[in-house]
């Protein structure tokens, strides 16, 4: 196959970059490991947040709102309301608890003596609702809608809990971005420094190439490929490190989840996020190399 001259030079630059990486295996391995560790920190935090989010979504199946109806509401009216609400959007499940069932439940809970002293059943009918989403805004809106019903007296909901969880997740997302940005800069700096040392080690070669007509673009290209390649391999190292961490942590998570009767396990990065991590590694390596080459070559002028 005959390649265009431009493509051929890109291919040559890539091969040169790979040879330079292989020429110093120990130094390259350390650089890649450092980049891998730097990338695995925000990756680990992202995994924690996404798994918490997943866990909270599964918890939403058990997040209930209890709607207490006014005491004067009769059983037929309460059942009618339950039937009307069952098909409302935003409600996953609805269970009607009659005042008689509620009393029985209370008696079973050990308050039998207290209840026998009462002349009549003081408990109202209630509707136990599972919302479709655990997001606090959704729970708040659903509560508002229900309160507008004349039959509804009070609502006990998990809004505050959901709000706290959402705030925690938001904080985690913010922390991931902040840590990701700081470590991205450090990755670019690590690559930049490696490239700077390489440029100085190849100063003679660069100066000779320039004397016989090499453009900055020609000189720059293998270094850029080197930076991108090193970043890509650093991303791969981060992927492996976070995968190993998940495998290790899942043993403890499985034990913890089983005590709650759950089969929850931490999930690995999915394919699109894994590709994004590799691309980020390569792009940050490329950016670090670009800056380093630009500044260092200017020193040679």
């Amino acid at each position: 196959m005959i390649l265009g001259a431009h493509t051929q030079h890109h291919l040559d630059s890539l091969v040169t970059a790979w040879q330079r990486l292989r020429a110093q295996p120990l130094a390259s391995a350390f650089s890649i490991l450092v980049i891998g560790i730097a990338l695995s920190l925000p990756t680990g935090l992202y995994l924690l947040i996404s798994n918490l989010d997943r866990a909270s979504s599964s918890l939403s199946e058990h997040t209930e709102m209890t709607v207490f109806l006014k005491p004067k509401i009769e059983t037929a009216a309460a059942l009618g309301l339950a039937e009307a609400l069952r098909n409302e959007p935003g409600i996953r499940k609805l269970r009607f608890v009659s005042r008689e069932d509620a009393l029985l439940e209370l008696q079973r809970s050990g308050l039998d003596d207290v209840l026998t002293s009462l002349s009549s059943n003081p408990l109202p009918h209630a509707l136990v609702i599972e919302p479709t989403q655990v997001h606090p805004e959704h729970i708040r809106r659903l509560g508002q809608q229900l309160r507008q019903r004349p039959e509804v007296d009070t609502i006990a909901s998990a809004e505050a809990w959901a709000h706290r969880l959402a705030a925690l997740l938001d904080f985690g997302v913010g922390l991931t971005w902040m840590l990701g940005t700081v470590l991205a800069l450090s990755l670019a700096a690590i690559t930049g420094n490696t490239i700077r040392l390489q440029i100085y080690a190849r100063r003679d070669e660069i100066e000779i190439s320039r004397l016989i007509g090499a453009t900055d673009r020609f000189i720059r290209r293998p270094f850029l490929y080197f930076g991108a390649l090193q970043g890509l391999l650093g991303g791969l190292a981060a992927l492996i490190l976070s995968g190993l961490a998940i495998l290790w942590l899942n043993q403890s998570v499985a034990e913890l989840a089983s005590t709650y009767g759950s089969s929850f396990r931490l999930a690995h990065l999915d394919a699109p996020i894994s590709l994004l991590l590799l691309a980020c590694g390569a792009l940050l390596g490329l950016a670090g190399a670009w800056l380093s080459v630009a500044y260092t070559l200017r020193d040679f002028d």
Binding site: A5, H9, D12, I208, S209, I212, G213, F218
Partner: peptide
């Protein structure tokens, strides 16, 4: 000269700069 390259590679370099390969 580039002492870490072969004799042929040294002569190929100006051609690569002119985008002549293969």
């Amino acid at each position: 000269l580039l002492y870490d390259r072969s004799v042929l590679d040294n002569v190929l370099l100006p051609l690569h700069l002119r985008e002549i390969h293969g």
